[in-house]
Simulated assay, not measured.
Amino acid sequence: MFDFVDHIWSDLHPILSHFPIALLFFGGALAVASRRWPDLTRFAVLVLVTGAVSTLPSVISGLVAHFPYEESSLHGAVEQHQLLAFGTTLLFLILGTWAWRTRHKPVPGVSTGPFLAVLAVGLILLTVVGGTGGELVYGHGIGVRGVNPLLDATQP
């Protein structure tokens, strides 16, 4: 049951990647809600900044995880996911900085239309990054150990 401990280093990227996904989507929902309920603004800023910062360990662990595939036929698919993740991380670091620097203004950045528009683009990109990561795992079997006993081995 605790076999995962033996593989913790190779599984670090999928573990760390789910934190920014959850935090950034939750922070986005709070930012939208803060327009109606301004008391949520400080919480929205905190969650968005935490989500933005949490992208860094995810990207670093992704860089480490991609090395075994550097010379494989999957290199192109891994690199596509990697480049999308770099761009999305940069966008969220900019958004996190924007949210943090404007948190004490009469109308904090997270409550403005331009911020929410860029945030929406970021969340769409984050969804695409997650989708390409999922395709690497479920479509190409990257990082999968063992065989799913529910699937027939003859299926493509």
Rank of each mutant, 00 (worst) to 15 (best):
T132M: 08
G51A: 02
F67I: 15
L74K: 00
V137K: 12
T88S: 08
S61D: 04
F25H: 09
L119N: 02
T102F: 06
V78I: 12
E70N: 06
V144C: 00
H75W: 15
A120I: 06
W98N: 03
L125T: 01
V78R: 08
L93N: 01
H66S: 14
V121T: 01
H104S: 15
W100M: 12
F25N: 05
G146H: 01
R36P: 02
H13C: 05
I142S: 08
Q155Y: 15
V53R: 01
F43L: 15
V32Y: 12
G141V: 00
V49K: 09
L84A: 01
I15Q: 08
T154Y: 05
H104D: 14
L84I: 06
L12N: 12
L40M: 08
R35L: 10
P20C: 02
G113D: 02
L48Y: 11
D152Q: 11
D39R: 15
F86I: 15
V137N: 03
V5T: 12
L23N: 08
E71G: 09
L30N: 00
E135I: 05
L56M: 07
V110N: 01
S10L: 15
V137H: 07
L91R: 07
L12T: 11
E70F: 13
Q80Y: 12
P156K: 08
G134H: 02
L119W: 08
V78M: 13
L91M: 10
L119S: 05
H75C: 11
V59Q: 13
Y69S: 00
T41M: 01
T41E: 12
T55M: 04
A153W: 03
A44P: 05
V147F: 06
E79V: 11
V59L: 15
L126W: 06
V121A: 03
Y138M: 01
P68T: 06
L74A: 09
H13A: 03
A52K: 08
V107S: 04
R36I: 11
M1R: 13
S34F: 05
R35T: 01
L30W: 03
K105D: 15
T89S: 10
D152R: 11
F92M: 03
S34D: 06
H18S: 07
P108F: 09
P68R: 10
L150H: 15
D6A: 14
S72Q: 06
V64W: 09
P14F: 10
D39N: 14
H18T: 05
A65G: 02
T89W: 02
L30R: 09
